[in-house]
Design a protein around this nucleic acid. Structure first.
Length: 483
RNA sequence: GGCGGCAUAGCCAAGUGGCUAAGGCAGAGGACUGCAAAUCCUUCAUCCUCGGUUCAACUCCGAGUGCCGCCUCCA
C-alpha cells in the first residue's frame, strides 16, 4: 500500500512516490536558536519524527536534514543584550535544543547543518542568482527580485499584484518591489559578519535553507516540511530562490504541521502564554507529551490545556497497563513468531495492524492509528480473560505487536510500561515514604481486627493529604495524587 | 481588505457518498472489594443552518452563520 500525503503546494491529497524507490530525502526547517524551544517546536519535531520513522518503517532509507539558523537579527539582539558573542548565544540554544529533543525521544536527524558553517555555499548561491538576473545589489546588500520569478506566490496562493498596496509592509524605497527580500544583509559596526563580494555582512533569512538543502539533498528532493507559519514568507522564498537558481522543481512534496494554541489563544511570546519544553517535562512524561501531540492530526490546530493533557495522561495509562498485563501473561516467554499463538488472537492482531497502517498511510493519521490501539486492546482484554493453553505465547505476540507501534510513535517504552506508578510528577522522599508505609501498616492491622471505621479514617485522612491507597492482591499500594 | 482552514456526543477527537459515525475523558449501570480505589465489562451522537447534485450526503457543490490561522518575526 502506498502512502498518501497532503501536499501544500498542490493543496491535494497525493500518492507519495519518492524520486528514487525506497529512498526518501527530506528537509525540515528547524529553529532559529535565540531562545529555548517551546511546545510549538516540540510539535513540529514530533510530527516530523513520526513521519520519518513511518517512512523508515515502510522500508525507505530516509535522509533527514534539520537546520539551525544560527545567525540572524534576534540572535544578534540577544547577544547585545547579554553582552556576549552572537555565536555563544546560538551555541547555547543548540545545546539546549538537543537536550529537549532527546528528552522528547526525537530520533536524531541525519545532519543538523548550521547557516554559519555554510557561508561559502550561501555566497555562491547568491552570486548565481545575481548572474541569472534574479537578484540585485543595493548599498552592499543583495535582494531577490520577486517579479522576476513568475511563479512567486504559488505555495502560499497569494496574488502579489493585487496586494501591491501592501498596507502593512513598510516600503523600502530602495527596493524594486515591496516584496523583494534580503539575501545578503550588510552588518552594522560591531555585528558578526563575513566577507563577501558585497558589503561585509550576513545571510538574510531564507537563503540558508535553500543553500543547505541543495548542498545535502540536491536540486530536487522529496519532502520539505515545517510549521504552517513558515509557508509565507519563508518557504515561498525558498522556492523562489532555489527554483530561480536551478530551474528545477525544488521539493516534490510540501508538508506543514498545524500550530499550537494555549487555552484557545495563539501561543506567542508577546502574549506570554508559551510553555517551554523543559517546563513541560518537569510535569509530564515525554510519552504523555508525544501522545498529546499525536492524538490530533498533524495538520489541525491543537489546543493545549493542562486539563487536557492530564486527561490524556490517564488514557495513556490504560494503554500501558494493558501492555503490562500482556507482558505479565507472557511470563517470560520470548516474543517468538506466530507459532503457538491462538488463531483468533492472531487474526485480531492482524486486523489491528492492518487498521493501524491504514490510518498511517492516509497522511500519517496518528490520531486514528492510536484510536485503533485502544479499540483493539479492549478486544484483547476479553480474549485474555480466561485461561487457555496458548495464553503465554499469545500474550507475548500481542505485546510484541503493540510494542512495535508504541515505539514507532514513541508513546511508550518498556520501562515506562513496567513502572510501578505510571503517574509521575510527585516524588516521595525517604522519610515521607517510610511514614506512609507505617500508616499502611496501622491500617492493615485495623483491617485485620475488622475495625473498618478506623481503617477508613486512616485512608481518608491521608487521601486528603494527597496519598491515595489501593488494596491489591499483593498488599496495599499507594500513589501520590497530582495537585 | 486579500488568502486559507475548521464547524462531529457534556468535553476532546478520528472518519466515510450507501455497511453498527473510531477512540479517549466525564457520566450511568454491572463485576470485583468489608467499603473504597484501581482494574475489567456494558451503556451514552445522526454529524452548525438553508438550498442544490444524487437512487442515496454527515461526507460533493453553493449560500449563510460562527470560530481560527496567515498576510510583520515565528514550529
Amino acid at each position: 500500500m502506498s502512502i498518501k500525503i497532503f501536499d501544500t503546494l498542490s493543496a491535494k491529497m497525493t500518492d507519495f512516490i519518492p524520486l528514487k524507490e525506497n529512498e526518501v530525502k527530506m528537509y525540515v526547517c528547524g529553529v532559529t536558536v535565540y531562545d529555548e524551544c517551546h511546545l510549538g517546536h516540540a510539535r513540529a519535531a514530533i510530527c516530523f519524527d513520526v513521519i520519518r520513522k513511518y517512512l523508515e518503517f515502510k522500508g525507505n532509507k530516509v535522509t533527514m536534514i534539520v537546520n539551525f539558523t544560527d545567525v540572524d537579527d534576534k540572535i544578534i539582539n540577544r547577544a547585545k543584550l547579554e553582552k556576549v558573542d552572537a555565536l555563544e548565544i546560538s551555541r547555547r540554544y543548540i545545546d539546549k535544543y538537543f537536550v529537549d529533543m532527546d528528552a522528547l525521544k526525537i530520533e536524531r536527524a541525519t545532519v543538523y547543518p548550521k547557516a554559519t558553517e555554510h557561508i561559502d555555499h550561501i555566497i555562491k548561491f547568491i552570486e548565481a542568482l545575481i548572474e541569472r538576473g534574479f537578484a540585485y545589489v543595493v548599498d552592499g546588500e543583495v535582494y531577490f527580485e520577486v517579479s522576476k520569478f513568475a511563479e512567486y506566490g504559488k505555495l502560499s496562493k497569494r496574488n502579489f499584484e493585487d496586494m501591491l498596496a501592501g498596507a502593512r509592509i513598510a516600503v523600502d524605497e530602495r527596493l524594486k518591489n515591496p516584496h523583494d527580500f534580503c539575501l545578503w544583509k550588510a552588518a552594522k559596526p560591531g555585528e558578526i559578519s563575513w566577507k563577501s563580494p558585497w558589503a561585509e555582512g550576513r545571510p538574510g533569512w531564507h537563503i540558508e535553507c535553500s543553500a543547505m538543502s541543495g548542498h545535502y539533498l540536491g536540486d530536487t528532493f522529496d519532502i520539505h516540511g515545517g510549521g504552517l507559519d513558515l509557508i509565507f514568507p519563508h518557504h515561498e522564498n525558498e522556492i523562489a530562490q532555489s527554483e530561480a537558481k536551478t530551474g528545477k522543481t525544488f521539493a516534490k512534496y510540501w508538508l506543514h504541521n498545524g500550530l499550537v494554541n494555549i487555552n484557545s489563544e495563539k501561543m506567542s511570546k508577546s502574549l506570554g502564554n508559551f510553555f517551554t519544553i523543559s517546563a513541560l517535562l518537569e510535569k509530564f512524561s515525554p510519552f504523555v507529551i508525544r501522545y498529546f501531540i499525536l492524538s490530533n492530526h498533524y495538520r489541525s490546530p491543537i489546543n493545549f490545556t493542562v486539563e487536557k493533557i492530564q486527561e490524556l495522561e490517564k488514557a495513556l495509562g490504560s494503554l500501558t497497563r494493558f501492555m503490562k498485563r500482556m507482558k505479565q501473561f507472557a511470563s517470560g516467554v520470548p516474543a517468538a513468531g506466530r507459532e503457538g499463538v491462538k488463531s483468533e488472537i492472531l487474526a485480531e492482531a492482524d486486523a489491528f495492524e492492518a487498521k493501524f497502517n491504514e490510518f498511517m498511510e492516509n497522511d500519517f493519521n496518528t490520531a486514528g492509528a492510536i484510536g485503533s490501539m485502544f479499540q483493539c486492546f479492549s478486544v484483547f482484554n476479553q480474549a485474555f480473560a480466561g485461561e487457555f493453553p496458548e495464553k503465554a505465547k499469545s500474550a507475548a505476540y500481542v505485546y510484541g505487536v503493540f510494542m512495535r507501534y508504541a515505539e514507532l510513535l514513541a508513546i511508550a517504552d518498556e520501562d515506562f510500561i513496567m513502572a510501578e506508578n505510571v503517574q509521575q510528577g510527585a516524588n516521595v522522599d525517604g522519610l515521607a515514604d517510610e511514614l506512609i508505609k507505617v500508616l499502611i501498616k496501622v491500617r492493615s492491622t485495623l483491617k485485620g481486627e475488622k475495625n473498618y471505621k478506623m481503617a477508613d479514617f486512616v485512608r481518608d485522612e491521608i487521601k486528603a493529604a494527597g496519598v491515595v491507597l489501593e488494596d491489591t492482591k499483593e498488599g496495599t499500594k499507594f500513589h501520590i495524587e497530582r495537585k
